[in-house]
């Protein structure tokens, strides 16, 4: 991968990125499976039971990594959108396109597991907590992006329009988050504090970190698979796609 630095721009073209993505997939998939196995073992069996929250707390081992990923993937998409709008590379928009469903999935997962956690902890499936509400709005933003992409037929227009939407979203997310927090402090009624940071044992922390890394590897594997199919679909008329071994067979 040393030469990768010098020839970085070589991989900006779909034709050369396609095989590279193909090589990454098995590695990322294997790493994801191994990390998930270790992480789940640690979180379900090794980590001690929480004396306050009982066994139910174990859902945070997936909830917290999912919430991290949901936000991080949006940031990565914004990064690709900026590159795409500034340098006009086709691949960057394809990357953003491939990331979106996984980002939305993690957002949904974070909300879902949040509800499962909330039921035994707070006695209710949903509270209008600042973080949960922000996460819900993040899901709306993902859905808006996917819907906008899906309804524009012309790929170039779809790339650029959805890129603008991502940028607008990126400017708005801090404002939305801040306003939701403000709103939440004014309506104190149902707010609940998540205080585990200090009381968390190191084994729990490691479990969570391994789970987060597993989510990472999973995301890379899935996004590479998806970006490959996006590339094939959009470059189907080009010579290099027609010359691919898997197309010709």
């Amino acid at each position: 991968m040393k030469k990768g630095l010098i020839h970085w721009f070589k991989y900006a073209s779909p034709a050369s990125f396609y095989p590279l993505a193909g090589r990454i997939i098995p590695w990322a998939a294997v790493i994801a499976v191994l990390l998930f196995a270790v992480g789940l073992y640690m979180s379900l069996f090794v980590a001690p039971m929480d004396y306050k929250q009982g066994e139910g707390y174990r859902i945070i081992f997936i909830h917290v990594p999912a919430a991290w990923m949901s936000m991080f993937i949006y940031v990565v998409m914004v990064f690709w959108a900026i590159i795409g709008l500034a340098v006009n590379t086709r691949l960057s928009a394809m990357m953003a396109q491939a990331l979106a469903p996984t980002g939305a999935m993690f957002t949904f997962l974070a909300l879902w597991t949040g509800a499962f956690w909330g039921k035994p902890m707070w006695g209710t499936w949903w509270v209008w907590d600042a973080r949960l509400t922000s996460e819900l709005i993040l899901l709306f933003l993902y859905i808006g992006y996917i819907a906008l992409r899906g309804s524009i037929d012309d790929n170039r227009r779809a790339d650029r329009a959805s890129g603008i939407l991502l940028l607008v979203g990126a400017v708005n997310i801090p404002i939305i988050h801040y306003s939701v927090k403000w709103w939440n402090t004014l309506h104190q009624g149902s707010s609940v504090s998540f205080q585990q940071g200090s009381s968390m044992s190191s084994i729990m922390l490691y479990g969570m970190l391994i789970m987060a890394l597993a989510c990472w590897a999973y995301t890379i594997a899935v996004v590479m698979v998806r970006v490959r199919s996006v590339i094939l679909q959009r470059e189907k008329d080009t010579k290099w796609v027609k010359n691919l071994a898997e197309i010709q067979s």
Binding site: I137, G144, A147, L148, I176, Y178
Partner: peptide, 9 residues
């Protein structure tokens, strides 16, 4: 879909 989330603040 696009605009309502941005209206929230």
């Amino acid at each position: 879909l696009l605009v309502l989330p941005l209206y929230i603040p």
